[in-house]
Structures are given as structure tokens and as C-alpha cells.
Nucleic acid binder design. Structure first.
Length: 868
RNA sequence: GGGCGCAUAGCUCAGCGGUAGAGCACUGGUCUUACAAACCAGGGGUCGCAGGUUCGAACCCUGCUGCGCCCA
């Protein structure tokens, strides 16, 4: 049986991802592998995609998240679950409206020129033409989503879900309309919820203004003084107590405003007196409410001052220095601190400084909903992975503020509330008649995008209709998302999921059983990726250069639970190399005639065969446990080491000697068996290369629908592992000797082996290039490992100094080990208190070290003196 | 200002009570008939600092310093 008669398989010697990936993906889709059947008897496994933004394109954060989700879903599909990964996008109200308005602006057209209806029509046109680029990019990544079920938050069905839940919440008085201070973006011209505001420490100024001889206040927003309607002090502040109830004249305006006592004031900050601008500051608003103060709005929606003589028409940032200058002219500026670093809120969409503003908006009363969300985690119905993130969750849901849900936009779900001519307010459900007649108008605002995203785990499955898909796949099994949006949509999905399904009972109401949180993708130095910083990477570039599997494997390998993931090009390259390694290992196996078939009984297998099968069994069990615990980094690492360090570096090398002998046929079966299982378990993370190799190896249709390999405990073989472990130590020692001696890797050296190792002597000699002793064999050096002694004939050309150095190093290590052991054994406390097993271990270490030291000293003494 | 987290090899990270690990990078040697995107061998860490608990601490506790994140 000579291998040369076997045909060379049709695999080139280098893996070329570009040639493989696209056709494979299209084939999977065509054959419907990613579609799910809600009528199936299989247990359900459903994950909904965290909906990417319709304006977005694939970035590394998506690639990361999708890699994890895809791996989970693919594994469950292989395990026989009815696996469904729901794809889709959200309509991203502000972002999308901004994009389309920018487009229109190029032609000098504003949305107001078009009017609401025509503008929304334009947005739909834009969506059809340019939106959703990310969906095509997901195919490159290999995302196994059920394309036939793709959803969009503005679709009819999902819009109906939005209207349904709005009506229910409204009727339950969990939605209300109220005038409050909101975060106003003067550029986007809309309200923002608290979490759409990003705070940063910015340079500003702190100006202290004398309102009167007794009253000095400090502010970072001097222009707001125009809207002051009071000055507040702490009611117990002895310095100012007597002023409470008096009035002071507000400079520049001539208005007289009261001095009030309010416990909110911090007497230790500044002068202990604060100006109160109820219409332009959330804290001042509360003070204003408590003291029934007038609420004076001094800016319009663009942030332009609306009154007050000389300041009228100035932008807020122009008004600020102008007001300060005017006050200075009156000698009222006590001090100015500049720069003064303080926290400033910015619109998360456009980064414009947010203006707190009194405004009439719609709100969700989150109290009972947030409590239910906290309870679902508290009582274990919903698990958060990693558990350490739970405190973050409780910290948020247990102290959640009411959610501002109205947005002054045109793109989105319009609030289903109608106002009648006589002040009537009617909330309209999806099947209700819209009020008609003179004077009835619908609310102008639309809902926050997150309001519809919050329904995503069930609106995508058909809710509010009781569809078979909903019955089968709700609750979802897992939600995979970044810890940074735990509050954005996880909290909201929990609130709405639990509320909408409350009637189904606590177990069925939850939107998902598990929340698996991942971190942020960072660059190779751990820095946050951002366009402005210039370190953002387009994942498409890396997929082009190294293949999708390489990118996926790199991301999975970096995914420690809840932790951020640094990624650099070097690492993607390393993953590409790993894929190439798999490619070539399979290529070798095929050239060698490997095949998948029934394994012979253990008795007929060599120690090497039994060892790799034993290791495979262990690795399969480990990977299963790691998958169940969302330990993507660990499972990737486990597979990387098994594939490369154990299978390729040892088993394949050992197989080469076996293939030339009686065990050849068994070896082919073992090679095929291990490779088959290895490719299967790697498939969820690196679907493309494994598919290409596995179909070639097995001749079967696809790995996507192949079964998941189960660990087989019967293969566990400690004896074989011990045998091969000895062989590995022996081979490594001889190689070290050869390297230290400066022997060329290919150079054959005659050697005599005594003291064991008979079983694998052929393998040993092959791996170390040692030939059988010939006539006139004269040992000039020896390598000893345990009971085995290898005597080598270097034809007298021994580098004695190198040998002395090598043995000296070993000796030093052994002496150190002995010293440590003796120190412990000399400690009576250790002997008395440490567990017996621990003491025994140290005793064993001492005995072994003593023996090695004696041997090494003798060997050193036997070396020729002075020669080199 | 409040809360949370992290400081381990040149870099990025595992380990979380019993002789310090990985990947990449680095050094030396090899085109050894699957793979030079590879193979073989090697060097490299008083586990941020200071105390404490323990027979024993990278690992538990306290404080400090430096970073990061979230919230105000």
C-alpha cells in the first residue's frame, strides 16, 4: 500500500478564503438551512438580532456580536434544535431623518418644503435604495439568519404592535403626557431621552454674579440668568436664613425675584446661593415646582434667545459672553474662572450640546415595569451572563426615571393620539376608528425608536397576533448584546416583554431566558475604536485580506465574558494561519487516504491512536461546557491547541510512521475520525473553511446540518495519555540536545535506546532523526528522561561546553525545586496543617529532584575536562 | 461628586489559595516529501505599591497610587 498511488485531492496547498466563501454562503441560503419551521417537533432555539440601524454599515462591533450569535445558533442547529436567528433592522428615527435631510439639503430643499407626507415618502425611497447595506455585509460574515423572516420596525406588522402596546399602556395609565424639563437637541430639533445624552468633561467658565449686596450666585451658563425666577439658599443656612422671603432685583431685566429656602441647595458649594431657572434646568425645575415659581422660557427651539432686548436673536453661545459683558459693565461680575471643567451633555447622534428645556412630552411611567424587570432577574427567570453584570442591571432598573418617548421628528411611529376641538384626547388602537370631523388633529410627534425596538423579541414573531411562530419561539432563548446597551434596549425589551405577555404567566412572559453580554471591540492597544481617533477598522477589509473565518475566529478567541475585545491585524493574520493549518492538515489526511468509518476496537489501536482519541473526547466535553457558559475565548483556545499542538504537531507526525506499516488502515480511520469531529466542533466559529474541508473529507452535503459530535467517555484512556506524554518528553529532550549541540535538523545520528520506550521506538527515532546503532557504535553523549536513556554517537564531535551548559541548567532547576521542597518540608506548621495529599506531593517532588541531581552531577562529572 | 471595574512576560489577555500560562512579538537553527501563512529549539515576569489573614497568597481582606467605564 503505497500512498503515491492515491490520487492527489483537489485541494491547493494554500487556503484561499475568497475562492470558497461566497459560493458556500449562497448555497446554504438556497438550500434553506437557516430557515426555521415553527411546526417542527424539535426544541426551539431563537435569538433575535439586535437590530442594526437602517443607515448603518457593518463595523467590528457587529462582526463581533454576530460571530457569537452565529456560533451559538449554528451549534444548536447541529444539536438538533429548531434554530432561528431572526434578522432585521430598526428605523433609527433621528439618524435616518438626518441622512435624508442632508440629501435633500444638497438640492436646497428642507423637509418643511416637502411637507410631512412627501418627506416620509422620500425616506422610504431612500431606505429602498441605500438603506440596509449592512444586510449584504452580514452575508460576507456568514451570518446564518432566516432571511425569509426579515423584519423592519416600520413594517405594517411591527407598527401594529407599536400601536397596540401604546394603547394598552395608555389605558393602564402607564403612558402620560406632561410638561417637564427634557434634553433638547437644538440641531436635531427634538427631545432626547436621558440615555441618548452623553456627558463629557468640557472646558467652560464659572462666573460669579452679584445680584445685590447680599446675593452672589455662580453659573456656567450665564445667559440663563435672563430666565431666573428666584434665588435659592438652604433653609438651615445661618448666613442667609434671614434673606428667605425677601426679594432681589434681577440685573439686566429689572424684574424682582424672591429668595426661597430649599433643601436641595448645597450650602458648601460656591456661595451657597443658587440662581433658579426653572424652564432651563432640571434641578431648578424641581425647585420651581416646590415653590410655585414662574417658568420662563428664554430660548426657542434653535437655542436662540427670544426676548430681553439686546440679547434677542443671539444664539445661546453668543448670548453667554454678551450677558457677562453687560453684567461686567454694571460691575456685577465678582469672579470668573476660565477654563472651568464641568460635565456637559451632548446629543448622542450629532454631539451638539444639549439644552435642558421645558417642554410638553409623552412619557412612560416605568415604576411597575422596571420593578418587574428587576424581579425577573432576581427570581432567576432571566439569567445574566456574566453574573457580575447583574449589579449593573439592578443599579439601573431599581432607579429608573420615567422615559420620554416622544420625538419631534417625522420619521417614525406617529403617536396614536387625537385631540378634539373641545379639548378631547383620544388614544386610538390599531382596530379603532380614527376620530373624524372638524377640528380633530393627530399628535404631531413620533415615538422613540427604542419604543418599537423594545417589542422586537415578539413583534418580529407576529405579535400582537397569536401566531405559531410566537408560540414556538417566544420567549427567545438568549439575547446577545453589548453591556453598553443594557439600558438602551435590554431594559426596554424586558419591560415591554413582561408587560405584553403578563397574561401568559411569569415563565412565558419573559422576552428571553438568558442575557449574554459582551464587551466593546478595541484596537490592538486596548483603545476604543472611533472614526475621529483614526483607529477604526472596516471589517470588510480584513475579511478581504484574511477571510471571514479568520476575522470570526479572532473575535471569538478574544471574547472573554463581559470583557472588551482588543483586536489587531496581527491577530487576524494569526487566525488566517490557523485556518491554513487546518486546510493543510486535512490535505495531508486526504493525501494519506484518511476516511471516515467505523473505528476499530481499542485493542487494535496504537498508543498514539488511543491518545488522540482520548484527548478528542476530553476536548469535546470541554468545548461543550464552555459553549454552555458562553466562554467563547476559552472554547476557541481549547480548539486551537487541540488542532494545532496535539493533532497537527504530534498525532499527524506520529501517523506518518504508522502509515508506512501494518497500522496504516487504522491510522487512516483515526485521522478521518478526529478530523471529522474537529471540523464539526470548529464549524460554529469558522463555518467556511470547515465546510469546504469537511465536505471534501466526507463527501457529504453540508456541515451546517450535520450533527454535533458528542464526547465519548469510553475513549478516555489515561494509560495512552501517559505513554504519549513520556514519548513527548523524550522527543523534546532529544531535540533540545540536538539544538544545543548545533546539529542540523535533518542530520541523522546513530543512537541506542535503553530502559523502555520499546512500544514507540520507531516513532521516537523518526521524530528525532535517530538511526539504529551501527558497527563501531561509540556513545559520546547521553540524554536521560525518567527510566529511558538515549546514548548518541556524535562521532566524537561533541560540543562539551554546550553540553555542560545544558546539564548545568537542568541541575540548577532541580536544585531550585529541591530547595523549595525542603523549605516546605522543614516547616512544622506545613506538615501539621497542610492536607496530607499536599505534603505527599512535596515529598514526591523532593525525591524526584534528589534523584535528578545525583544523575546530573554524575553526568557532568563524566564529561571530558577542558575540551570544547 | 457617587458607583463599578481593572492593574500578571515587550504587546493583548487567561489564571483567582498549593512548583507562574497562552497568543502575538523576540532570539537561534531549518525549504525534514500537509503547511516557510510552516517546522524545531530557546530567552523573557520579585503577578502596581504597602500592610494584614493563612502552614502557604498573583489569587482572600484593608489602605494607597495609576488607569478605565457608568451615573450625576
Amino acid at each position: 500500500m503505497t500512498e503515491s498511488t492515491l490520487p492527489e485531492p483537489a485541494l491547493p496547498s494554500v487556503y484561499d478564503p475568497a475562492a470558497v466563501e461566497a459560493p458556500l454562503y449562497e448555497g446554504w441560503v438556497e438550500r434553506g438551512y437557516f430557515e426555521a419551521d415553527e411546526k417542527s417537533d424539535k426544541p426551539p432555539y431563537c435569538i433575535v438580532i439586535p437590530p442594526p440601524n437602517v443607515t448603518g454599515s457593518l463595523h467590528l462591533g457587529h462582526a463581533f456580536e454576530h460571530t457569537l450569535i452565529d456560533a451559538l445558533v449554528r451549534r444548536r442547529r447541529m444539536q438538533g434544535y429548531e434554530a432561528l436567528w431572526m434578522p432585521g433592522m430598526d428605523h433609527a428615527g433621528i439618524a435616518t431623518q438626518n441622512v435624508v435631510e442632508r440629501e435633500l439639503a444638497k438640492d436646497g430643499v428642507s423637509r418643511h418644503d416637502l411637507g410631512r407626507e412627501a418627506f416620509v415618502e422620500k425616506v422610504w425611497e431612500w431606505k429602498a435604495e441605500s438603506g440596509g447595506r449592512i444586510l449584504a455585509q452580514m452575508r460576507r460574515l456568514g451570518d446564518g439568519v432566516a432571511w425569509s423572516r426579515e423584519r423592519f420596525t416600520m413594517d405594517d406588522g411591527l407598527s401594529r404592535a407599536v400601536q397596540t402596546i401604546f394603547k394598552r399602556l395608555y389605558d393602564d395609565e402607564l403612558i402620560y403626557r406632561a410638561e417637564r424639563i427634557i434634553n433638547w437637541c437644538v440641531r436635531c430639533h427634538t427631545a432626547l431621552s436621558d440615555i441618548e445624552v452623553e456627558h463629557s468633561d468640557d472646558d467652560g467658565e464659572l462666573v460669579s454674579i452679584r445680584y445685590s449686596d447680599d446675593v452672589v450666585v455662580a453659573t456656567t451658563r450665564a445667559e440663563t440668568m435672563l430666565g431666573d425666577t428666584a434665588v435659592a439658599v438652604h433653609p438651615d443656612d445661618e448666613r442667609y436664613k434671614h434673606l428667605i422671603g425677601t426679594e432681589v432685583e434681577l440685573p439686566l431685566t429689572g424684574r424682582r425675584i424672591p429668595i426661597v429656602g430649599d433643601p436641595h441647595v448645597d450650602p458648601a458649594f460656591g456661595t451657597g446661593m443658587v440662581k433658579v431657572t426653572p424652564a432651563h434646568d432640571p434641578n431648578d425645575f424641581e425647585i420651581g415646582r416646590r415653590h410655585d415659581l414662574p417658568m420662563l422660557t428664554i430660548m426657542d427651539e434653535r437655542g436662540v434667545i427670544t426676548a430681553h432686548g439686546p440679547f434677542q436673536g443671539l444664539d445661546r453661545f453668543e448670548a453667554r459672553p454678551a450677558v457677562v459683558a453687560a453684567l461686567r459693565a454694571e460691575g456685577r461680575i465678582v469672579s470668573e474662572k476660565r477654563p472651568y471643567v464641568h460635565a456637559v451633555g451632548h446629543c448622542s447622534r450629532c454631539k451638539t450640546v444639549v439644552e435642558p428645556r421645558l417642554s410638553l412630552q409623552w412619557w412612560v411611567r416605568v415604576g411597575p415595569l422596571a420593578k418587574a424587570s428587576g424581579d425577573a432577574v432576581r427570581d432567576g427567570r432571566v439569567a445574566i451572563h456574566p453574573k457580575s453584570m447583574e449589579s449593573r442591571w439592578f443599579g439601573w432598573v431599581d432607579d429608573m426615571h420615567d422615559w420620554c418617548i416622544s420625538r419631534q421628528l417625522w420619521w417614525g411611529h406617529r403617536i396614536p393620539v387625537w385631540y378634539g376641538p373641545a379639548g378631547e384626547v383620544v388614544c386610538v388602537g390599531p382596530d379603532d376608528d380614527v376620530p373624524t370631523g372638524e377640528g380633530w388633529v393627530q399628535d404631531e410627534d413620533v415615538l422613540d425608536t427604542w419604543f418599537s425596538s423594545a417589542l422586537w423579541p415578539f413583534s418580529t414573531l407576529g405579535w400582537p397576533d397569536e401566531t405559531p411562530a410566537l408560540e414556538k419561539f417566544y420567549p427567545n432563548q438568549v439575547l446577545v448584546t453589548g453591556y453598553d446597551i443594557l439600558f438602551f434596549w435590554v431594559a426596554r425589551m424586558m419591560m415591554f416583554g413582561l408587560y405584553a405577555h403578563a397574561g401568559a404567566g411569569p415563565e412565558k412572559a419573559i422576552p428571553f431566558h438568558t442575557i449574554a453580554l459582551h464587551g466593546m471591540v478595541r484596537d490592538e492597544r486596548g483603545k476604543k475604536m472611533s472614526k475621529s481617533f483614526g483607529n477604526a477598522v472596516d471589517p470588510l477589509d480584513w475579511m478581504d485580506a484574511y477571510g471571514s473565518d479568520a476575522l470570526r475566529f479572532t473575535l471569538a478567541r478574544g471574547a472573554n465574558p463581559g470583557a472588551d475585545v482588543p483586536i489587531g491585524e496581527d491577530w487576524v493574520q494569526a487566525s488566517r494561519n490557523f485556518c491554513n493549518k487546518l486546510w493543510n492538515a486535512t490535505r495531508f489526511a486526504l493525501i494519506s487516504g484518511a476516511r471516515v468509518g467505523e473505528l476499530p476496537p481499542s485493542e487494535e489501536l496504537t498508543a498514539a491512536d488511543r491518545w488522540i482519541l482520548s484527548r478528542l473526547n476530553t476536548v469535546l466535553a470541554e468545548v461543550d461546557a464552555q459553549f454552555e457558559d458562553y466562554q467563547f475565548a476559552k472554547l476557541s483556545d481549547t480548539l486551537y491547541h487541540f488542532a494545532w499542538d496535539e493533532f497537527c504537531d504530534w498525532y499527524v507526525e506520529l501517523a506518518k510512521t504508522q502509515l508506512g506499516g501494518d497500522a496504516a488502515e487504522n491510522t487512516r480511520l483515526v485521522l478521518g475520525h478526529v478530523l471529522d469531529r474537529l471540523l464539526r466542533v470548529l464549524h460554529p466559529v469558522t463555518p467556511f473553511v470547515t465546510e469546504a474541508l469537511w465536505t471534501t473529507l466526507t463527501g457529504q452535503e453540508s456541515l451546517v446540518v450535520a450533527s454535533w459530535p458528542a464526547a465519548d467517555a469510553a475513549r478516555h484512556d489515561p494509560a495512552a495519555e501517559a505513554t504519549v506524554g513520556e514519548l513527548q518528553r523524550l522527543v523534546t529532550e532529544v531535540r533540545r540536545f540536538r539544538s544545543d549541540q548545533g546539529l542540523k535538523p535533518g542530520q541523522k545520528v546513530p543512537a541506542r535506546v535503553t530502559g523502555g520506550a520499546a512500544e514507540h521506538e520507531a516513532a521516537f527515532r523518526s521524530l528525532t532523526r535517530l538511526t539504529a546503532p551501527e558497527d563501531g557504535f561509540a556513545a559520546t553523549a547521553q540524554v536521560v528522561v525518567g527510566a529511558v536513556t538515549v546514548e548518541l554517537d556524535l562521532s566524537g564531535a561533541v560540543d562539551v561546553e554546550a553540553e555542560r551548559k545544558r546539564l548545568g541548567k537542568d541541575l540548577a532547576n532541580e536544585r531550585k525545586a529541591l530547595e523549595q521542597a525542603l523549605r516546605k518540608l522543614g516547616n512544622e506548621q506545613f506538615l501539621a496543617k497542610a492536607p496530607e495529599s499536599e505534603v505527599d506531593k512535596v515529598r514526591g517532588r523532593r525525591t524526584a529532584a534528589e534523584a535528578e541531581i545525583a544523575r546530573l552531577e554524575a553526568q557532568l562529572a563524566g564529561l571530558p575536562q577542558g575540551a570544547s
